[in-house]
């Protein structure tokens, strides 16, 4: 059935457009126009932070992610794109075991953070999630003051020994999230009173307050207006100096602007991975090209 979908997508293409990338790949021995189950592009990176191999995820009977192999380098921004329902969020949520909270969700394969197996049964998710933080699609500040929102993580992980230290962490995090100037006079006011873009930056501040190594972002701008989006994108760029960032996005422009590498997912498979510049100028796989040129998805 899946193969049929691909056929119907490829058949209406004009032959000139169609042959170019295919010819490229088939010289590598891959008939990519027919098969998206094999990932095109180089999975390995030099300075590995996270390494995933043969990741399969299913919700009950329904498999959502099929045999994905992917490495993420230290301090890189990797964008994950693809049509809705292709398993981007599911894959992202494996990386800090957020899928544990979903009943019936089964993950198999090997996922490593600095050579430590994330799904090791002996591993405690509390420190893992402190190391791999997450920012969600819809800004979800807690119903607490701005200060308490940011202080929450450091408090539950015991990162501050005194009020002074905690104040420092809160200020630093808000500064890094570019929210300090707007929030410094209203730290005791509810975080829910901020605008949508400010709320999302507050969520980012909250995440970086626990000094994670990796930050996962699931469509962090999809609920925001263009100006707020631009600020978050700037922020991602600044944050990449200190953090490794994996971002799921629906906006190709966003992926092109913020990321170093881009991964294209399709129906639960990782179809193509490569440097962002290459992917957007010279996609190797037919499906990737269709998606980024707007013919599909």
């Amino acid at each position: 059935m899946t193969t049929m979908t691909v056929d119907s997508n490829t058949s209406p293409q004009s032959s000139q457009e169609a042959t170019q990338p295919v010819a490229d790949i088939s010289s590598n021995g891959l008939d990519s126009s027919r098969d998206y189950r094999q990932t095109v592009g180089k999975i390995e990176v030099a300075n590995t932070k996270m390494s995933m191999r043969d990741v399969n995820v299913s919700y009950g009977d329904k498999q959502a992610v099929f045999g994905v192999d992917l490495d993420i380098a230290k301090n890189e921004v990797i964008a994950m794109i693809g049509p809705s329902g292709c398993g981007k969020s599911t894959f992202l949520r494996c990386m800090n075991r957020m899928n544990d909270t979903i009943e019936g969700c089964v993950v198999s394969g090997s996922l490593k953070l600095d050579d430590q197996d994330i799904y090791d049964p002996k591993l405690d998710v509390v420190p893992l999630r402190a190391r791999v933080g997450m920012v969600f699609q819809k800004p979800n500040p807690f119903p607490k003051s701005i200060y308490d929102n940011v202080a929450y993580g450091p408090q539950i992980h015991g990162l501050a020994n005194s009020k002074v230290e905690l104040d420092e962490i809160v200020e630093n995090s808000l500064r890094k999230a570019g929210l300090w100037n707007e929030a410094k006079d209203r730290l005791d006011q509810p975080g829910t009173g901020l605008s949508g873009g400010q709320q999302q930056r507050l969520c980012i501040a909250r995440t970086i307050a626990v000094s994670p190594e990796v930050i996962l972002m699931d469509e962090p701008c999809s609920a925001l207006d263009p100006i707020a989006t631009a600020r978050i994108e700037e922020l991602i760029d600044e944050l990449s100096a200190n953090f490794t960032i994996a971002i799921v996005t629906h906006s190709m422009q966003q992926a092109a602007r913020v990321s170093h590498r881009t991964a294209y997912f399709h129906l639960g498979y990782l179809v193509e991975i490569g440097d962002t510049d290459d992917i957007f100028t010279n996609p190797k796989h037919r499906l990737t090209e269709d998606y980024i040129t707007g013919r599909f998805g």
Binding site: N96, M98, T101, V125, V126, P127, L128, R129, A130, G133, M134, F136, K138, N140, P141, F142, P143, Y152, G153, I156, H157, C203, R206, T207, V210
Partner: peptide
């Protein structure tokens, strides 16, 4: 649920 996710995502029990 998003509030629970946010809290779990920070490593809260």
């Amino acid at each position: 649920q998003s509030l629970r996710d946010g809290s779990f995502g920070l490593g809260a029990t």
